[in-house]
């Protein structure tokens, strides 16, 4: 294991200690931190990769211990993966994921939300992008009502009785073009 909770033994040279928001300490292999641009930059700035520099624990005020455990699991699994490169190809009509990734992200929505925030905070591009793709895959093929449920979007527009499509509630919403589409069953012909 490259990551363990701190023990009484001296800190190995190639590790740093990070402290979660709830005060739990984690010993992180420097190799793992390369996947986090935030940690990598911090280590570089403080020269923690040098053996003669004293390494103070790094507080991660936005990351809970549960999130940190989950993130370390991700970092360990991708320890020997090549550096992540952003794909220029954008939208997709189908999504496929590694079995390990599917199992790893088979978590409740609220945990997924927190993990995405943590990945954003620590700037772990592969994890960040993967969670975003997972969320996109959960939207694909869904109706507006289903998307509202998946993404916890509260309805602030009325649905047209005939079409089921949102219609504008008042004059203030007309600017954003909401439901100007198919407002009525029988629009007047020009």
């Amino acid at each position: 294991m490259s990551c363990e909770e701190p023990t009484t033994s001296p800190t190995p040279e190639n590790n740093i200690t990070v402290v979660s928001s709830d005060g739990k300490e984690f010993l992180l292999d420097l190799k793992l931190t390369e996947q986090s641009e935030t940690l990598a930059r911090l280590i570089s700035n403080f020269e923690y990769d040098r053996t003669d520099v004293k390494k103070d624990p790094v507080p991660l005020g936005n990351i809970t211990s549960a999130q940190m455990q989950k993130i370390i699991e991700w970092l360990q699994h991708h320890r020997y993966y090549p550096k992540w490169e952003q794909n220029d190809i954008h939208y997709s009509t189908s999504f496929t994921f590694e079995t390990w990734v599917e199992e790893y992200l088979n978590i409740p929505n609220n945990e997924m939300f927190e993990l995405l925030n943590a990945a954003n905070y620590l700037n772990i591009p592969r994890l960040f992008s993967t969670i975003c793709r997972i969320m996109a895959s959960r939207i694909t093929g869904k109706s507006a009502e289903q998307i509202r449920t998946v993404l916890n979007i509260k309805t602030d527009v009325k649905n047209d009785v005939y079409t089921g499509i949102p219609i504008q509630e008042d004059s203030s919403s007309s600017e954003d073009g909401m439901s100007e589409i198919s407002l009525s069953p029988s629009p007047p012909p020009i």
Binding site: T93, A144, I147, D156, V157, P166, S173, D176, M178
Partner: peptide, 15 residues
């Protein structure tokens, strides 16, 4: 990551 179809549907979800 979304197709135009999903963007349109999402845009209709709320203001």
């Amino acid at each position: 990551q979304l197709t135009p179809f999903e963007i349109i549907i999402l845009s209709l979800c709320s203001k």
